[in-house]
Simulated assay, not measured.
Amino acid sequence: MNYNGLLSTFPREIRLFIAVFVVILSIGFFTGLLFVKQTEATTPAGVEENYLGNEQDADATIMKFKKGEREMLTIVHTHILSMSFVFFLLGALVWITKLPKKWKLFLTIEPFLSVLLTFGGIYLMWIGITWFKFVVIFSGILMTLTFTFSSCLVLLQCLKKSEH
């Protein structure tokens, strides 16, 4: 079965449906990034402070406390589950775009690794392996880049004239 470029052969209405889905999915994804920015967890020190607290910092303007185990497990659990579904659905759409197989493989497998490294890394940092804050930032950036590229790829091919 040849699925490369299948998306562009779909009827206009189905491509519009997929495009709207990807736009709404993107709004949800990037709203999550706004939340990360709001919590000032975009730097290694900010990531560490967000989960481990800043009670020892007398100069802190906003007091943050170390997250409890229940809260950490909830954060890790919900994000790994929900992000897995996000990347599974987006990945299924990437596989029917017109793009070389190696690129598709990267764009559909890498996000799962980044999800694991980002949220597993947050947990490992929380239990005391603080250098994981660098892994969390790197994998989070890579996850965002692959999401953005994949979303744009699907949207552009949905908006292209049908080849059918």
Rank of each mutant, 00 (worst) to 15 (best):
M1A: 14
Y3E: 13
Y3N: 12
N4L: 09
G5P: 10
G5Q: 08
L7I: 12
L7D: 09
L7S: 12
L7M: 10
S8A: 13
T9E: 13
F10I: 13
P11V: 10
R12W: 02
R15S: 07
L16T: 14
I18H: 04
A19Q: 06
F21R: 06
F21K: 07
V23Q: 04
I24D: 03
I24E: 03
I24K: 05
L25M: 11
L25D: 09
S26R: 06
G28E: 00
F30N: 08
G32N: 01
L34G: 15
L34F: 10
L34P: 07
F35P: 08
Q38R: 14
Q38G: 12
E40F: 12
E40S: 15
E40D: 15
A41C: 14
T42E: 14
T42R: 11
T43S: 15
A45I: 06
G46K: 03
G46A: 13
V47S: 02
E49G: 00
E49A: 14
L52A: 04
G53A: 00
E55C: 00
Q56D: 11
Q56K: 10
Q56P: 00
D59G: 03
I62P: 03
F65Y: 12
K67F: 04
K67M: 14
K67R: 13
G68D: 11
G68A: 05
E69G: 12
R70Y: 05
R70P: 03
E71R: 08
M72E: 01
M72C: 01
T74W: 04
T74N: 12
I75L: 11
H77Q: 11
H77A: 12
L81W: 02
F85L: 15
F87R: 02
L89E: 02
A92G: 09
L93N: 07
V94Q: 08
W95K: 12
I96A: 09
T97V: 11
T97H: 06
K98H: 09
L99Y: 03
P100G: 07
K101M: 10
K102P: 11
W103H: 12
F106K: 11
F106H: 06
L107H: 06
T108H: 04
I109P: 01
E110W: 08
E110F: 12
P111E: 03
F112H: 14
F112I: 12
L113S: 04
S114I: 01
L116C: 02
L116M: 08
L117H: 01
L117R: 01
F119G: 00
G121K: 00
I122Y: 04
M125N: 02
W126P: 00
W126V: 02
I127F: 08
G128F: 05
W131P: 07
F132Q: 08
V136L: 06
V136M: 05
F138H: 01
F138P: 00
S139E: 03
T144E: 05
L145Q: 06
T148I: 11
F149A: 14
S151I: 09
C152K: 04
L153I: 12
L153F: 08
L153Q: 10
K160A: 13
H164G: 15
